[in-house]
């Protein structure tokens, strides 16, 4: 899909220091009935965010006005479970463009990259530093620099580099997607297909 180019993102961040956040929490199955991509942000973290009667749960971070920003910082093993891309759509639709964690589940990571969310994997130590910085000052900003592959806590100046393959980096910084690439090589795929035994 078409998405915004990603180069340098400077923003405050929303902390969610919970491990193994699975995609059923990010967007519960009963909200997957739409046949369009937009609008899932309203139900992002639905059951952590709202009570059964739809009133907001005051102790959940998205309901706390002191935290905001385009970066979501999650605990270890973020995005496990169901392959639903709706989870990434919900995060994007809510307004996040980057998720930071010390470890991501594979499918969630791939889905995010495909729709223009940058997953940034940092060391557990650096993740703790980010949580501490936000705890000390909810207005603390992070700078995520994709061309440089670095993430910096601006209030302390602490910085770490992160990995991303060259192909995906090129796509994200230019707003390209895989389908453009694949469409351009259909002739090669056709030849390959003819050789398949199945």
């Amino acid at each position: 899909m078409a998405y915004d180019k990603f180069t340098i993102l400077t923003s405050t961040a929303v902390p969610l220091p919970i491990e193994n956040v699975d995609t059923d929490q990010i967007i519960p199955a009963r909200f997957l009935k739409a046949t369009k991509r937009e609008g899932f942000g309203d139900n992002l973290f639905r059951d952590w965010r709202y009570n059964g009667d739809d009133t907001p749960k005051q102790d959940f971070v998205l309901n706390n006005p002191i935290y905001s920003g385009k970066i979501l910082v999650g605990g270890h093993n973020f995005g496990s479970g169901s392959s639903r891309e709706h989870a990434a759509w919900a995060i994007y639709d809510y307004g996040f463009r980057c998720v930071v964690s010390s470890f991501f589940a594979d499918i969630f990571k791939g889905n995010s990259l495909n729709i223009g969310i940058l997953p940034v994997q940092v060391t557990p130590e650096f993740l703790d530093k980010i949580f501490l910085a936000i705890e000390a000052d909810p207005n603390a900003e992070l700078e995520v620099n994709l061309p440089e592959q670095s993430i910096t806590i601006l209030s302390t100046g602490e910085s770490e580099s992160f990995n991303i393959n060259g192909y995906k980096k090129h796509n994200m910084t230019n707003g390209f997607d895989d389908i453009d690439y694949l469409q351009a090589m259909k002739g090669e795929i056709k030849v390959f297909q003819e050789e398949r035994i199945y």
Partner: peptide, 22 residues
């Protein structure tokens, strides 16, 4: 293996997806 919807679109349109080898 399981894929996301963007990849479903890739398979429909080109019978391929982009995968780093695990």
């Amino acid at each position: 293996f399981g894929i996301g919807t963007s990849e479903v679109e890739m398979v429909l349109s080109s019978q391929c997806i982009m995968q780093p080898k695990p």
